[in-house]
Design a protein around this nucleic acid. Structure first.
Lengths: 302, 302
DNA sequence: GGGGTCCATGACGGTAAGGCATACCAGCCA
DNA sequence: TGGCTGGTATGCCTTACCGTCATGGACCCC
């Protein structure tokens, strides 16, 4: 008895999504089907491949080794498909994953610089949360990820082999306030002044801590708007609808009517932008991207 | 719709065996099942993969490209299987195919020499007919083949890319006769003297010309024994049961009671021992084997 | 403790895979 | 020309698997 191709596909999706249910919806299956496929894989290999934990699953060591080979097999049939369709092979393309706010910061400039210096390198980009990106690296769905990390800066996950990570820049969080607001009076505001404010947050998700609300702000934050987009959030701030947190890289792109101020009186809210990838040989295109990203990160205010 | 793993396995087997029926028996399937799998593959890819000809099938260009990727995928799941079972990975092993009489000639000595100079290189060996070996190279089931070739030395097959071949040695056929026979009187015999003789031939197959009977011998050969094994054939000769052809490499291993003589009066029966492999990068272990085989071939009488 | 989120599992239908028998086709030989 | 011998294709049938639905059980959080 041996694994089926769909089984391997399911394995990869589980590895990437971190749960049977998420993998199922992604693949257009039922959760039940994915559960069965997972069971079939474990039966076929005779080993436990998944660690069922609350809130999802992670791969066991055996699951990771199977995943490693599964990706090779799946990529081979995908390559066959492309080649038989007459499409060009995909190697040389670097798949880059980014956390949401990287998209408006270093990423476009780094890619533009890269296109000038190395026009042959093709890059595809995918935006996702940090844990999703870490899983995607392990599932070999992306080659490189730009991640956000907050103290304490632990390892990205506790699977083997540990991911190779490289700090691109270390910044401190800022607060975006309407230009007319009393909070915009000085260059800094006190933490206590953040009580009883209207907040503009990111999309609320159970997994991630709410983005947009200053961590440790006193009282229960009153979230009046949620928006995914930085531009939306900043324009909401400009319209006086509320306040929100922003990374400092946005400093020179804020629309008129928005002021960025620092917050005093709490712990320093330091953020790192981290580059992560699987350990092992690094193809030249990837090293070039890393070089471009580092160069661009160095040029940012920090 | 995409190909299944068993479909790819069937494809590889068809490529290797050269016919649906042979692939079926090899895989333990019915010919019908293989035919359906082949049809399913062609339906899935939307292209003709097989050239149905009399006596079997060959792969079309599309079939060959699919095969190339299929082998990668199948090897990946095989590697996963091995690794999950705790077996060592198989890379570094060179799979060598040989035509039958190579087994008693250069092969053992070359492998012995290789084991002395490079004990780390593992070699597996498989014996098959020349066309089967050529197909096995294309199916990537073997990495290298030692083939016999007779004039005119054409290309090994007419598929793309053409196989890379390298002549190891060029020899001329000899005749093994019982020591007491009138044929053993001198060092040579005349072609006409071969009429009305008892012959010891190889296993008769419809595909291959009968081995063992001197090509162009006058009259209809009277085959009184057939044997696969060189030692068997030579002992049959020693016992006076008949005569047979042998490659000259056996010269120093013939049992007592057997004499090797040349044949005059016909076209020179030249044979080449040829090394063949797919074009492309050559892993170091393979180059070492090639080196050992060439060295051993050079030390043979030729 | 109730609700939400996750995985497991019994029951069920549809599809596809493989076996069997047969049709069919091309070459070969008498 | 008419079997015979390779080979492939295909209609019919059974079976086994795959995915869905619905439900149950474990766990966390509020």
């Amino acid at each position: 008895m041996d694994p089926s191709l769909t089984g391997l596909r399911v394995l990869r999706e589980i590895a990437e999504r971190g749960s049977f249910t998420a993998a199922a919806t992604q693949l257009g299956y039922t959760q039940s089907a994915v559960s069965r496929q997972a069971a079939a894989l474990e039966r076929a290999t005779g080993q436990r491949l998944f660690d069922r934990q609350v809130g999802g699953v992670t791969l066991t060591a055996a699951g990771l080794t199977l995943l490693r080979h599964a990706v090779v097999a799946l990529d081979a049939v995908a390559a066959a498909d492309r080649e038989l369709k007459g499409l060009p092979p995909e190697h040389g393309i670097v798949r880059l994953g980014t956390f949401p706010s990287a998209g408006v910061l270093i990423l476009p400039r780094a890619l533009a610089a890269l296109r000038r210096t190395h026009p042959r390198i093709r890059v595809t980009t995918r935006e996702a949360t940090t844990p999703a990106l870490v899983r995607a690296i392990r599932a070999r769905t992306i080659d490189l990820a730009v991640l956000a990390s907050r103290p304490p800066h632990r390892q990205l996950d506790d699977q083997a082999p540990p991911l190779e990570s490289l700090t691109l820049s270390e910044t401190t969080l800022l607060l975006a306030v309407p230009a007319g607001s009393p909070l915009a009076a000085g260059d800094t505001v006190e933490l206590e002044a953040l009580a009883d404010q209207d907040w503009i947050a990111g999309p609320s998700s159970t997994a991630e801590p709410t983005m947009g609300v200053w961590p440790g702000a006193p009282g229960r934050p009153r979230i009046v708007h949620t928006a995914r987009d930085w531009l939306t959030k900043l324009h909401l701030v400009a319209a006086g609808c509320g306040i929100t947190t922003v990374p400092p890289g946005l400093a020179d792109t804020v629309p008129p009517g928005v002021r960025l101020v620092e917050v005093q009186g709490g712990p320093a809210e330091r953020r790192r932008v981290v580059l992560a990838r699987l350990p092992g040989p690094c193809p030249p295109a990837v090293t070039e991207i890393i070089r471009a990203l580092r160069q661009e990160a160095a040029r940012q205010p920090g």
